[in-house]
Amino acid sequence: MLTDERRTLILDRLRSQGRVLAADLSAELDVSQDTIRRDLRDLDEAGLLRRVHGGALPRDAGAQPFAERTRRAPAVKASIARRAAACARDGQVIVIDGGTTTLEVARALGDDLRATVVTTSPPVAIALADHPGLEVTVVGGTLRREPLVTVGADAVESLRAVRADLVYLGVCGLHPEIGVTTDDIEERHVKAAMIAGAAEVLALADGDKLGTAMPFVVAPLREVTHLITDHGVTESDLAPYRALGLEVLQA
């Protein structure tokens, strides 16, 4: 396959899948990962994608509107959310991060659950507004328009005062060596505050997010207790996370 053909295929995969992993492209195209990394670097420099550790995202991935993000892999998100929601227990203080998968978790919480929910996500709060057994607190701050979450010093300070039993954490990237990462420095501080006060941290990540890393590190993986991902992830891909002590749950 010629270089231009290979790079066209990479861009096609990116458009259809929302992200690409260097290891997967290397195996599919039967070329070295060094070759794929050069392709991704050159495509990034040409403004055609955004290179991240382990692969690439669309150039405008961080600016996609929330409604558009909800249309990506809805069945996978719903499956992960149902598995995650089953971990909630009566009497807990639960922090729910922003994101489209965490929104599905909110929708999946059983009507019989009696708990306190703290969230930085207005869509999550709205989804829980009619839940009969939950007391819902929305953390104030500056609203980021694309992900629809609150950030800033007020949000961080509020979360530092919460000693949560359980955190449902939305992640942009989850890498065995680099840890939990995100694409926005303000969100990084908010997510770190969530994790710092929690007894259990459930990272919700479909297979495409595993092995990738975004620019801003939220926390090392030793601060995460559970990884909840989809059933399509292979055991070899999960092994590094199990080795670090995470309890892995597949939906």
Rank of each mutant, 00 (worst) to 15 (best):
M1K: 01
E5R: 12
E5I: 10
L14V: 07
Q17N: 12
S32P: 12
Q33C: 09
T35N: 05
I36K: 03
L49R: 11
R50W: 13
V52N: 05
G55K: 04
P58V: 03
F66S: 09
T70R: 15
T70M: 15
R72T: 13
K77I: 01
R89A: 13
G99D: 08
E104M: 09
D112E: 14
A115H: 10
T116Y: 01
P123Y: 03
L128W: 02
L128V: 03
H131V: 03
V138T: 13
V138C: 12
V139F: 02
E146R: 10
V149T: 13
A153V: 12
D154H: 13
S158W: 07
L159G: 04
A164F: 05
G170E: 02
G170D: 00
V171M: 07
C172N: 15
L174Q: 03
V180T: 07
I185Y: 08
R188L: 09
R188K: 14
V190R: 06
A193M: 02
I195Q: 00
A196M: 01
M214C: 12
A219R: 08
E223V: 03
V224H: 05
V224E: 05
T225W: 10
L227M: 10
G232A: 13
V233R: 06
E235F: 12
L238G: 09
Y241L: 11
L246V: 10
